[in-house]
């Protein structure tokens, strides 16, 4: 194995002339990248009711659907959003307002086409909303958004954050290839 040979070569190269040799007794051994001993995710929602979870699941599925690769629902995004919303009174309030709006629109009963038609202009409004310019010593002005658009902006951001940091998103959808051991950094062989 190349990695093993590389490690042995490295151990053989202990410097004796350097004023500050890295102490041989502290030499690292085989370098294995290990996963941390991470806490288990919560098994049931912290704040959302079953009906709210159903709404969150539907919205997340519309924003990042399964394609050739898994979508937001398979990646556990609804539970991630529950986790984020549970941490802030501001989010809890905005989501209560968002859920009330979706109920008023009878969202669960709409066809997929009409659900998308309802969300699209709000997402467009949210995508375009930018805070005011930076001025020294002054707070930036927040973009003016309707409650529904602010809710959809937050929801889309949380869905994107949750999905693209999940294993399904980062590894299966984006094909993250890093966090490995390379004996050397490969030079680019393209014509530039």
């Amino acid at each position: 194995m190349a990695d093993r040979r590389e490690t042995l070569k490295i151990i053989g190269a202990v410097g004796s002339t350097c004023a500050f040799p890295y102490s041989a007794d502290e030499l690292y051994g085989q370098h294995a990248h290990q996963s941390p001993n991470a806490p288990a995710p919560p098994s049931k929602p912290l704040v959302f009711t079953p009906a709210e979870m159903a709404l969150v699941t539907r919205l997340a599925d519309l924003i990042i659907p399964a394609t050739a690769t898994p979508g937001a629902v398979a990646a556990g995004v609804p539970m991630y959003i529950d986790y984020v919303v549970s941490s802030s009174a501001r989010w809890r309030k905005l989501f209560r307002q968002g859920f009330a709006w979706l109920q008023r629109e009878k969202f669960p009963e709409l066809s997929e086409e009409r659900q998308i038609a309802l969300l699209t202009p709000l997402i467009e409004q949210a995508d375009k909303a930018k805070p005011g310019p930076w001025r020294q010593g002054q707070a930036r002005t927040e973009p003016k958004l309707s409650t529904e658009a602010a809710f959809m902006k937050a929801f889309k951001s949380m869905t994107a954050d949750g999905f693209f940091t999940s294993k399904q998103g980062l590894v299966e959808s984006l094909h993250y290839a890093g966090n490995t051991v390379l004996a050397e950094f490969p030079a680019c062989l393209h014509e530039h």
């Binding site: 924003i63 394609t67 467009e124 995508d127 994107a160 954050d161 940091t165």
Partner: peptide, 17 residues
């Protein structure tokens, strides 16, 4: 490992993904 910029890409659904 960090894809924080994804939320700033426009749209939703398959096109967004």
């Amino acid at each position: 490992r960090s894809v924080g910029w994804a939320r700033d890409i426009g749209g939703l659904g398959k096109g967004f993904k």
